[in-house]
Design a protein around this nucleic acid. Structure first.
Length: 304
DNA sequence: CAAGAGAGGCGTCATTCTCA
DNA sequence: TGAGAATGACGCCTCTCTTG
């Protein structure tokens, strides 16, 4: 059940209300009754929560009769959860803006072994599998290893948003000195170092028996068998075109996969935000009803 | 304990939206 | 206006709970 604490009822300033949601979350809400919010939530029968800003609602709103096609167009207009939640957040200080990137809350705590879900898998010329997981984690799986036990993970330490395509492995091969190499955009080479446990400063330190990796500038002479992905302009053969198309598709799917996750997260946050609003409005409504009853008693004294 | 229902998450595709 | 991001819809999978 929803509980309310510390509600400020000052008439001059907007009231600040702490609302305890059923989930245990406490939300601080300010100014519950506000100017008409530019959000429109339509009837639930249409199975669609239609939200649009006033600026986006055109003059068709005043037309009583809307043909089915136009209605469908209107109903299919999609809400931007980021935009909506930001608007809500601007009204409700207790609710963080969606734009604010989660820093420590979603970051993986150090020293905790994680098995990131691979999002893109590549196979090296030596049979190893390289998976690019979200967050820039690169996992290397040796053939023959059963299940995920053969997975080795390393995380790029570049903080912040990586450059586009920064974690896309272009190709992989075994160099002459027996080290495993694969290539990332930016003309860099990630080299598996078999001998040393000293990870370079720009790489995450490997622990235990895990091999370490280095990012090196590629030598002018690529190892035998290594073919850097060419730019689209230099592609000629149908095979190269097909490989480029496949690579682009993999990249697109990976991005869309991540976007879908993020979108779902935003949607859940948006729904939570709406639920908290409902809770606050219910409390406010109850208060107003009580206030109305009090005023009624004052204004209509008993006349015996 | 097996089978089924329901919820929730994920990946993908198609479509819409946003912005440079 | 085009490219990329965002989102709805769909199917699939997994987990939990209920029921016989």
């Amino acid at each position: 059940m929803v509980s309310v604490a510390g509600s400020g009822t000052g008439r001059g300033s907007p009231a600040v209300t702490l609302v305890q949601l059923p989930s245990g979350q406490t939300v601080q809400v300010q100014g519950v009754i506000q100017t008409p919010h530019p959000l429109v939530i339509q009837s639930p029968q249409i199975q669609t929560v239609q939200v649009a800003t006033i600026a986006e609602t055109d003059d068709s709103a005043d037309s009583e009769v809307i043909d089915s096609h136009k209605r469908r167009e209107i109903l299919s207009r999609r809400p931007s959860y980021r935009k909506i939640l930001n608007e809500l957040s601007s009204d409700v200080p207790g609710i963080p803006k969606i734009e604010e990137e989660k820093s420590e809350e979603e970051g993986t705590p150090p020293n905790i072994a994680t098995m990131a879900v691979p999002t893109s898998i590549y196979q090296t010329s030596t049979g190893q599998y390289i998976a690019i997981a979200q967050g820039g984690t690169i996992q290397i799986s040796n053939p023959g290893s059963d299940g995920v036990q053969g997975l080795q993970a390393l995380t790029m330490t570049n903080s912040g948003a990586p450059p586009p395509g920064a974690t896309i492995v272009q190709y992989a091969a075994q160099s002459a000195d027996g080290t495993q190499q694969f290539f990332v955009p930016g003309s860099q080479v990630v080299v598996q170092d078999e001998e040393t446990d000293l990870a370079p400063s720009h790489m995450a330190a490997a622990t235990g028996d895990m091999p370490t990796y280095q990012i090196r500038a590629p030598t002018t002479a690529l190892p035998q068998g290594v073919v850097m992905a060419a730019s689209p302009g230099s592609l000629h053969s149908p095979q190269q075109l097909a490989e480029e198309a496949t690579r682009k598709r993999e990249l697109r799917l990976m991005k869309n996969r991540e976007a879908a996750k993020e979108c779902r997260r935003r949607k859940k946050e948006y729904v939570k935000c709406l639920e908290s609003r409902v809770a606050v409005l219910e409390v406010q409504n109850k208060k107003l009803i009580e206030e109305l009853e009090t005023l009624k008693d004052i204004c209509s004294p008993k006349t015996d």
